[in-house]
Amino acid sequence: MPIESSQGRGATRNTTPTRFNLKERVADGEWLDQVEALDGVPRRRTSVTIEHPRAILTRNSSPDIGFDRSVNAYRGCEHGCIYCFARPTHAFHDLSPGIDFESRLFAKPTAPQLLHAALSRPGYECRPIAMGTNTDPYQPIEERWRITRALIELLLETRHPFTITTKSDRVLRDLDLLKPAADLGLACVAMSVTSLDPKIARTLEPRAPQPRKRLAAVKALNAAGVPCYVAIAPVVPQITDHELEQIVEAAAAAGAPGGFYLPVRLPLEVAPLFRDWLDEHFPDRAGKVMATIRSLRGGKDNDPNFFSRMRGQGPWADLLRTRFELATKKHGLRHAKFPLRTDLFRPPEGAQMRLL
């Protein structure tokens, strides 16, 4: 018996993390188990817990990712994108990659101080820092916590290059910081647009801003001189792939200098959540969708191998690549590149941050 409604969420259920041998959650006879019978099923509310990490700069050595370091101000994401490859990280907190990931959020208010310390270390080598690689830096709770803004303030102060990936037009609230950073060649944005259809977007990404708002943000950023690319990421076969050319055209019309696409990835616990979502929202084509994904992923739900995990493989991958290349050529959209300056970097002054 459910004790909370998943209405308005991306995942249709909470799954138990399996990689850490955690026990299955079962009803224990408490009053909450009877709440449906008493008052009906209440909606799941979003909660935010303060997290105190020891470090904030995450490094990777992946040869198929265009950055080697990233910062994430939050853990979990209220946007609720069903395909989000970051969902399994919630298992480290004994929480479900399902609805917990969308509603049991963690904020890292000490992130700016931790980044200040990292940039101050002797011998620090400056390279672009990516934000939004795991969870969206402009999800709704940024309006209150403003951690992303504080990070940008520090990066601008130290003349450190950075990229932002987001699905939200809330990024425009920091235009006063992004513009001077972009004028120095230090900043660019990638706006994720997966579908132009409001209904599809609402099921794929239930709490993210609608596509028209994202494209309006792309236009506003580029008009202000902040390079904003469009990421068609992910492309979901049989659900959004038919919109590839339309999104490229819309990106070009919004003034985007370039774009890129990525086929959907379903790592670890994401695959069963995605299957449940298909059964709920697209039962008529669920089998066809998964068959196409497996053809892209070497016969499996997911392919974790370098290079192929980003591009896919087989006829479907070749077709997507050809379609994207033809569309970008037709509409004058370049493949996204993020040429940012690193020669302007100056380490923070003193032991404390000057702006915070």
Rank of each mutant, 00 (worst) to 15 (best):
I200L: 15
P237R: 09
V264L: 03
I239N: 02
G255A: 11
K213E: 14
C188Q: 08
Q238G: 07
C188Y: 03
Y261K: 04
A208V: 03
P180M: 04
A201R: 08
G225F: 00
P209V: 09
A233H: 10
A253E: 15
I232N: 00
N222E: 11
A253P: 04
M191F: 12
D241F: 07
R214Q: 01
L178Y: 00
R214M: 00
I247K: 14
G255E: 08
I200A: 14
R214D: 10
T203R: 15
P211K: 06
L186K: 02
V264K: 00
L186Y: 14
L221Y: 02
A224F: 07
E205K: 01
A187Q: 02
A223L: 14
R212L: 04
Q210A: 15
L204E: 03
E205S: 09
N222C: 15
A253K: 15
V230E: 05
G258Y: 10
E245Y: 07
V218G: 00
Q210T: 14
F260A: 10
P263S: 08
A252G: 04
N222D: 08
I200N: 13
V226D: 13
E249V: 05
S192A: 11
L196A: 10
V218S: 07
G225R: 03
A252E: 13
K199S: 04
P211F: 00
A254Y: 02
A251C: 07
P209H: 14
Q238D: 09
F260C: 12
D197L: 00
A224H: 03
I232C: 00
A253S: 13
N222K: 02
P234T: 11
S195R: 06
R214Y: 06
A251Q: 04
V235K: 08
G255S: 10
Q246M: 09
P206N: 09
A253T: 11
P263R: 10
P263Q: 10
L178M: 15
A208H: 03
P257K: 04
H242W: 14
G259C: 03
E245T: 13
D241R: 10
V193R: 10
P180Y: 11
R202L: 10
V189F: 02
G225E: 10
I239C: 13
L262R: 09
D183L: 07
V236E: 06
I239S: 06
P198N: 04
P209S: 12
E205A: 13
G225Y: 02
K213W: 09
L178D: 12
I200E: 13
G259F: 01
A256D: 05
V193Q: 06
A223W: 03
K179N: 01
V264G: 01
P263Y: 11
A181W: 02
G185Y: 04
L204R: 05
P198H: 05
P206V: 02
G259N: 09
L244G: 05
P257H: 07
A217Q: 00
E249I: 03
P237Y: 15
G225T: 06
A250P: 14
E205Q: 11
